[in-house]
């Protein structure tokens, strides 16, 4: 929803709202990066980022139509899809901090470190990376739809609740303690505050 809001406010040049929404999303992305290290089992990068062999095996299974619902968390292809989206999102937000609008009166909070022309170039990149993000998000959503329709596997419920009815004997998701959540949120907010304040 925040992403849609950023799209809308960017297109319609409501830059003050765009900036505030960007700060919130920046905090969320920083949180997700921290959570990928200290969070619940299925949230960790080590859980869903696998080497080429696992990806190959999964892709083969996928093509042969073998269904394996005993796994929880992102599958090997979906995991890298998440990583790619996170990386592009982080790049997009970083570029946004340096972006200068065409009128030069509502620049990003770190744009004072660069010139108007450089800031305009960054704005161009900000646009390109956004198109890349749209493509990756579209791909991710298409994969989710594929799972829902062809493989009859609802992925959205488990994403929201963390609970999944699984047929196999896979270990259930181990949530992280609440204090870690609180610390991660506070650290993310502090980093954003430092950046915004300049």
């Amino acid at each position: 929803m925040l992403f849609a809001a950023l799209w809308w406010t960017g297109e319609t040049e409501q830059l003050d709202l765009h900036r505030d929404a960007g700060f919130i999303l920046l905090g969320m992305v920083i949180f997700r990066l921290i959570w990928g290290v200290v969070g619940g089992s299925t949230a960790r990068f080590s859980d869903f980022l696998h080497g080429p062999r696992a990806i190959g095996a999964y892709a083969t299974d996928l093509i042969r139509g073998r269904i394996d619902r005993s796994v929880i968390g992102h599958n090997p292809l979906g995991g890298w899809s998440v990583a790619a989206m996170l990386a592009l999102l982080a790049a997009e937000l970083t570029l946004g901090l340096f972006t200068v609008d065409i009128d030069g009166d509502q620049p990003g909070p770190l744009a004072r470190l660069i010139s108007y022309d450089q800031g305009r170039t960054v704005a161009q990149w900000h646009q390109w990376v956004f198109n890349g993000l749209l493509a990756l998000i579209g791909l991710h959503l298409a994969a989710i739809a594929f799972h829902a329709v062809v493989k009859r596997d609802n992925l959205i419920g488990p994403m929201l609740t963390g609970a999944k009815r699984h047929a196999g004997d896979a270990a259930p998701m181990r949530p992280a303690p609440m204090w870690r959540l609180a610390v991660a949120v506070l650290v993310s907010a502090a980093i954003v505050w430092l950046i915004v304040r300049g």
Binding site: V100, G104, D105, Q106, P107, S115, Y116, D117, G119, R120
Partner: peptide, 16 residues
């Protein structure tokens, strides 16, 4: 126009 934009950014940056 780029010169105008640059001047505008210059004022913005100085004020901040």
């Amino acid at each position: 126009y780029k010169a105008i934009g640059a001047a505008s950014k210059g004022i913005y940056d100085e004020l901040n």
